[in-house]
Design a protein around this nucleic acid. Sequence first.
DNA 1: TCTCTTCCGTGAGCAGTGCTCTTGCTTTGC
DNA 2: GCAAAGCAAGAGCACTGCTCACGGAAGAGA
Lengths: 245, 245
Amino acid sequence: MRDVTSPPASTPRTARALAREAITHEILAAARARLAEDGPAALSLRAVARDVGMVSSAVYRYVENRDALLTALIVECYDELGAAVEDAEAAVADRADVTSRWLAACRAVRTWSVTHPGEFRLLYGTPVPGYAAPPDTIDPATRLVLVLVAVVADAHDDGAVPPLSPTAQGDLTELVAGARDFVAARGLIEDAPPELVVRTLMAWTTVLGTVSFEMFGHLANTVSDPEAWFDVVALRLAADLGIGL
Amino acid sequence: MRDVTSPPASTPRTARALAREAITHEILAAARARLAEDGPAALSLRAVARDVGMVSSAVYRYVENRDALLTALIVECYDELGAAVEDAEAAVADRADVTSRWLAACRAVRTWSVTHPGEFRLLYGTPVPGYAAPPDTIDPATRLVLVLVAVVADAHDDGAVPPLSPTAQGDLTELVAGARDFVAARGLIEDAPPELVVRTLMAWTTVLGTVSFEMFGHLANTVSDPEAWFDVVALRLAADLGIGL
DNA sequence: TCTCTTCCGTGAGCAGTGCTCTTGCTTTGC
DNA sequence: GCAAAGCAAGAGCACTGCTCACGGAAGAGA
């Protein structure tokens, strides 16, 4: 019984390949479970091997080494987080209400992070000592940022964004040229005002900084309710971006 | 030859105790050197033992365990960073120029971080898996924040801070009560406006977030000159706080 | 159906880790 | 001068990432 939907030449989906894929998936799942408990740096390949009922060396049939396992996890997590933010933002019915869309996206970032502390550490915590993230990870990583930028871009197109009190200091245009090319290449804003780019970058920094502070305990004894605090921050950032209130 | 300056009863500064102190210091120094290379999670007690020319078990005479070593390093680094920021801020001659004082303090944060990447990871990166920072560390950690708050407080006392466009959303007062008590207890601002506290907290989050982004490589291909970018961010935060331009 | 190749799991092994414990030596205090 | 205390060494335990030779199983081609 042949599978006509997928050509066997390009992807020979034999039973063997399927089993291999399933086991690889099982290994990744076990690794993510371990991740939540001990953190990325302490991720033990032997431990995940035990969890899936294998001997440690057998895992190397499926995963090249520990770094490759980390990379796979990073890509998976970035994608999951990106999807969560995309869904949350897309769920806002009133597309003209950019403030709600911004808040929904930001909240989704925090919600996912709080419910996935181990994964958050992997993505936005200290890089694992000997590990250097390969280029494969930067594309999934941008997915989340694109949602935020898209909201800002929409608000900008509507003309709802007031002039952003430009502080004259050198050529901002050149400084954030990379970021402007980034959004331009994705067809979001053709010729973004540097002011807007700077504000958006700062906002994204503050969003992630706020979540990091909460996750890593730097907010203890300072703010009573982290969730409410995050909302305050997110709304103020929206106001700073000219898309709030 | 007795040392009259220090009473021998409370601190018996014998030659032995001095030698012990010196070796402990040497161990800490070696650990910090290792820190810069491999990061906190990979800090190997055996490696620092080799560096100081000891066998691994010998260091346990001076350091209780790896966590205690980390704690000592954290306290040391927080103090060093705090001192660096204090000095930089104090070096601004014109005390009325709050903007320059703010910028100097912020710049000192970044400069220290960039020149001490390993230590920065230790302080503001992912907490080491099995390690929980003891209460001894929170006091040194606040030292740096106090400098920033003091600048804001001075600006506030001068009355130079304009009304901060309050976005009405629940009772901010209760939300940031911890932070307000914090500054009040240190005699900085007696009855700080919640608006100001919120802004200052956000600014501090953004400052550290910006440095973290740079240090952990999340700013790659986005901003051409991290140092110039940091200045832009810091100055804009000052403007948001009402102490800039 | 038979063979041959490819794949997979096992277990031993190497070098490294944190940490404990015993042993012997040196230094200190009386 | 001697007992006590402190110190460095080394063996040892359980753990880590990773490699490699081995035997078995499963699929592919004839």
